[in-house]
Design a protein around this nucleic acid. Structure first.
Length: 638
RNA sequence: GCCGGUGUAGCUCAGUGGUAGAGCAGCAGUUUUGUAAACUGCAGGUCGUCAGUUCAAUCCUGACCACCGGCUCCA
């Protein structure tokens, strides 16, 4: 009698099974319904397919279509399915990698001829045929040399060198009919599971992301267990397209981009309102939290950038120029300038923490291919700050920064915030013990300020110190990294910054860099997409529009709009000869928050008939009454 | 930077080897209108830039510029 394995199920019950029992058998044993719904199994966190024999005991669960991890399995299998179809249609294709991603899957191919957009429907069609065949994903295990032989035989040459990089000695292949791919798995039982798929794009990629390496083509797609989920996902993509900040920005006349300055956005008056509103919000917090605001020059001597270390790490991204036979650089960061301010006079420990904020415009020569609207630019303004303090003050300071971050994100409407703590990388400089203390201070500050859910990103810190990354989730569920808090042991030293301690001796302060919105440009872009241009009143470029019903009310409409402007409400008047329905349509498309309709009745009684952007009628009221309402709403940032 | 695609009026887009159109927006007039599109007319373009092929190029070729999608969440 063989020893039994012990499986701990999610409900706490224990099941004894013989070694070699498959996941499917366990599921069937629990219930026939579960056996049918089972996609894969999970033992001690390792996902395995349903026909794999169970070799060890431990925490066990059956994954069904409802599990997030199962979706990942499905999509990985979908990537294989894609490769099957491409190999059928493009014989002689070599395979790259084909993983599942957060929202779908892709596979990289080297094909005899280019795959073009028009090929996607054909590939998708072929995939659907293979789905109907219900081809199994049969796992085959071989050793290292067997793997190479197999790949050689299949003509998959790119993957051959990769075999040596696989740590395990047992290498698995998955056979599905005529198709075979070296793959770690796991997979769904057969292709019949992958009914709901959509190919989305074909684009360039490189073998292992190396731009000097083999060029390949990446086909991207997505897959879901259910038709409804796929449909919802495609609708979300369409939603994202509709709220694309480049499109909305043009429609609302917020900003423009020109060939004369690629990556250098031009802000129009209405876009500048958003910018100024955000700056105002941040300034309020700065004042309340004891920051001073500084401004440092855009162009500074080369020598400064050599001293700061940017020359070594950042030179390729910087702009240079010659002035009076001296070499200057356009600043890519604000910190060195701020350090010059700190160093301009002696400091006492009593001044610490010394907090200096700067809305600092920086230029970075990003690669031309990565530019993207406001989200990836070459000139941007950071809501930057540098705090000089003692190591003992780190935790409280970081805590206050996190608190400020939360306050600001709350005000702009981002309530779902995620944080990551990035720790000491390989090439770190400075005392490892100081690193450890700083990492502890960052973690502890996160815990004490309501960010207990933070995740650890080992080795992802900057070379000069650990950092916290702050991510926000937008209305479409997308995550954006905006804020960052970075401890810096290096720069104060490089600049010889000092303070006099209680002991009368000179000490080097620790420096914290932090930004909350990150880049103003990018943040406005994110906000545009978050709100789809339908901003809350305090941010809205045009808060109210007075619409005359006939030309007889033109003067009254203009008078009302001037009255609103004088009271601090951003108002316009539409006195064109069009019918009011047409003006309402236009104002709605412009995403104006309030429409104040004025006809004969209102002109007579000195009132306005208020309609919201959403179409609600608030009824007639005096302009003063409307102003009071609007100002209250603006004040509350509702 | 690299791969692929795109570039025609302010916007969305047709179109052709013989120097260009529509809708919306704009302007003018008519209408004087009550909560998401009144009617008529007018104006608007070096067809991204520069070269080449051709009797002739917005169209074909090349270079450049800009934009769009992407460029390892590892078999």
């Amino acid at each position: 009698m063989s020893p039994q394995l012990e499986l701990r199920l999610p409900d706490g019950s224990i099941r004894q099974v013989a070694p070699g029992t498959t996941v499917r058998q366990v599921a069937a044993d629990i219930g026939p319904g579960l056996a049918k719904a089972a996609v894969a199994g999970e033992i001690e966190g390792d996902v395995i397919e349903i026909d794999r024999p169970i070799e060890s005991g431990g925490a066990f669960r059956i994954l069904t279509a409802r599990d997030e991890d199962a979706l990942h399995v499905l999509r990985h299998s979908a990537a294989h399915l894609l490769a099957m179809a491409v190999l059928d249609l493009f014989p002689g294709t070599d395979l790259g990698f084909g993983p599942a991603t957060d929202d779908g899957f892709y596979y990289d191919f080297r094909t005899p001829r280019q795959i073009v957009e028009e090929d996607l429907p054909k590939i998708e069609q072929r995939m659907k045929e293979i789905v109907k065949e219900k081809r199994a994903y049969a796992r085959v295990e071989v050793d290292r040399s067997g793997a190479k032989e197999r790949l050689q035989g299949l003509g998959f040459e790119l993957k051959i060198p990769h075999v040596d990089e696989i740590p395990e000695d047992v290498i698995s292949f998955y056979d599905s009919g005529t198709f075979t791919d070296m793959c770690e798995g796991p997979h769904v039982p057969d292709t019949g599971w992958i009914e709901h798929i959509k190919l989305l794009s074909v684009s360039g990629a490189y073998w292992r992301g190396d731009a000097s390496g083999v060029p390949m083509q990446r086909v991207r797609g997505t897959a879901f267990f259910g038709k409804k989920e796929l449909k919802a996902h495609l609708e979300r993509i369409e939603q994202a397209r509709l709220r694309d900040h480049r499109k909305v920005g043009r429609e609302m006349d917020l900003f423009s981009l020109h060939a004369e300055g690629p990556g250098f956005p031009f802000w129009h008056p209405k876009g500048a309102i958003l910018w100024n509103a955000l700056e105002g919000l941040v300034r309020e917090e700065l004042l309340a939290r004891g920051y001073g605001e500084v401004r440092t020059p855009t162009v500074l001597s080369d020598e400064l950038w050599k001293r700061s270390g940017h020359w070594d790490h950042f030179k390729d991204d910087m702009y240079f120029m010659e002035i009076d036979e001296r070499s200057f650089a356009v600043k890519p960061m604000n910190c060195p300038g701020c350090c010059l301010i700190y160093g301009s006079k002696p400091h006492s420990y009593k001044e610490l923490p010394l907090r200096m904020a700067e809305f600092g415009g920086v230029h970075r020569n990003e690669m031309s291919g990565v530019l993207h609207g406001l989200l990836r630019v070459r000139a941007f303004t950071q809501d930057d700050a540098h705090v000089y303090c003692t190591e003992e003050q780190l935790e409280d300071e970081i805590g206050d920064m996190l608190d400020m971050t939360r306050a600001i994100y709350d005000a702009v409407g981002f309530h779902d915030i995620k944080t990551r703590l990035a720790t000491r990388p390989e090439d770190a400089m400075g005392d490892p013990e100081a690193w450890e203390r700083a990492e502890k201070a960052l973690g502890s500050a996160l815990d004490k300020n309501g960010f207990e859910g933070w995740t650890l990103a080992p080795g992802e810190g900057a070379f000069y110190g650990p950092k916290i990354e702050v991510h926000v989730t937008d209305a479409l569920g997308r995550s954006w990294q905006c804020g960052t808090v970075q401890v810096d042991f290096s720069m104060p030293e490089r600049f010889g910054l000092e303070y006099t301690g209680r002991d009368g001796a000179k000490h080097t302060p620790v420096m914290i860099h932090r930004a909350i919105l990150g880049s103003m440009e990018r943040f406005v872009g994110i906000l545009i997409e978050h709100y789809a241009g339908k901003f809350p009143l305090w941010l809205a470029p045009v808060q109210a529009k007075v619409l005359s019903i006939t030309e007889k009310q033109a003067d009254y409409a203009l008078e009302v709009s001037r009255q609103l402007q004088a009271a601090g409400v951003r108002a316009e008047a539409d006195i064109r000869g069009d019918k009011v329905g047409s003006k309402i349509r236009d104002a709605t498309l412009e995403r104006v928050n309030y429409m104040l309709v004025v006809g004969g009745r209102e002109a007579e009684s000195g009132q306005v008939d208020v309609r919201t952007r959403a179409g609600d009628r608030l009824g007639a009221m005096s302009p003063d009454e409307f102003v009071a309402r609007a100002l209250a709403e603006i004040r509350n940032r509702a």
